[in-house]
Design a protein around this nucleic acid. Structure first.
Lengths: 242, 242
DNA sequence: CTGGATCCATGATGATACTG
DNA sequence: CAGTATCATCATGGATCCAG
């Protein structure tokens, strides 16, 4: 193999980590695999802007680094990329960086900025995780026409985001207490302003308590984003989501 | 200004964070400022391998990003670079990445690899933080001939690493219970194998309990590093440091 | 001396098109 | 679906030089 590994040559664990996952796009590839395995084109779609060549190179580097594996089943065209246990352990680091970004670089989407449902869901899940006091269990199932199926769940302590399109997605340990159906294109604007549900054709079903909690948590996130613009240093306060 | 900011154009808080601090060398600059303010040449020494041009560009970018500030006191030649509160809040993210590196990419120093006392101290502090059960307060002061002065301290819950060469270093809230004096060159080999203290001319003073704890914690770290080589995927177990 | 700036070489990334 | 191929551009490294 002998891939072109740019080193720092420091005896430093951070430098070592960055040699493995610090290249441009690498952490974003890992981000998109945290919710479950993806195919090459799934990743290419979500990573809008990356060229196929760079994506190929990154996938090979991360495979060499032991962070992900490529499942190439004989007789199937598709290649499913999946995090190894080592790669999955990067979750706390990505969450910490994302949470920093959310507090210091949040702003409403800009025109021309790609807005993928999965990234929006990750931001909301992270905000809830960091701000909701005394979380109770939850299981929301989101069916996005043309955008896949996701599960956002809380086990009573931690929240998680899972892509149910991954053929090996772990089964739920509880049935959904809320189901959302929406067009993939309508989903992001809805999440940023849940009051537009009817206008955007978003269907919500579930028991009243779950619906109320969903609307409250998502609404608080949307407001925290809409309040920010490019000139302020945003600060998300631990309130409003309790 | 209009610096050349390479964007991802994703509505994603991780991508936003990486646009600010994800360039090559950026997180290592922040790492070296976490222990206190540094001058240009201090950073250049610790970042061995970075060119002055790249360091200049990174410092300007991070200043624009609000992560650090440059103190240029009139009448003084030195420029002291210091993290802003926003920059200091990156500590959990850097710790998470470093800890991942320590568990998945640890190995003894390679020939030709730069081994700076500060980076070694950061690795040890992090390992102790993650593995010691029920930490009690501690305050170690390390005087390195030609390598500065550091304080490694525990307040009873969290460990910290502070460079006492920073003219604005926060005062200690307790007097040191252990003082180490060593030549800067002798310090890294000593930390990786504390039994070589006499041979390397390292002086240790303090009360017996503190000395015992220091030797135990540092010894466990050194062994966990020495056990690794480039072929194994290291795993640091939460034991031996209790 | 510190804190850079300048010039050039090279490697990494981007844009676009195409293929097994 | 999962990449390659080609070309252009940009970021980084290496070496040297300079002003306060």
């Amino acid at each position: 193999m002998a891939r072109n590994v740019r080193t720092y040559d420091h005896f430093c664990m951070l430098a070592r980590a960055l040699e493995l996952v610090g290249d441009r796009w690498s952490l974003l590839v890992i981000r998109d695999l945290l919710s479950g395995a993806k195919r090459f084109t799934d990743l290419h779609d979500r990573l809008g802007g990356i060229t196929p060549k760079t994506l190929t190179v990154r996938l090979r580097e991360l495979e060499d680094a032991g962070v992900l594996t490529a499942d190439r089943q004989p007789g199937r065209r598709e290649v499913w990329y999946r995090l190894t246990p080592s790669g999955a352990e990067l979750a706390p680091a990505l969450d910490a960086l994302s949470w920093w970004g959310q507090r210091h670089a949040a702003r409403p989407p800009r025109p021309g900025e790609r807005l993928h449902a999965e990234h929006l869901l990750r931001a909301i899940t992270l905000a809830i995780e960091h701000t909701e006091q005394d979380p109770s269990p939850a299981c929301w199932e989101l069916h996005l026409d043309g955008g896949g199926i996701y599960r956002v769940a809380c086990d009573g302590a931690r929240w998680s985001l899972t892509s149910l399109d991954d053929p090996a997605a772990p089964p739920s340990d509880r049935s959904p207490d809320l189901i959302l159906r929406a067009d993939a294109a309508a989903f992001p604007p809805f999440m940023l302003d849940p009051s537009r549900a009817a206008e955007l054709g978003v269907e919500l079903d579930g028991d009243p308590e779950a619906l109320d909690r969903f609307t409250r948590l998502v609404g608080a996130f949307g407001q925290s984003i809409q309040q920010q613009d490019d000139t302020t240093d945003p600060q998300i306060e631990p309130n409003g989501l309790t």
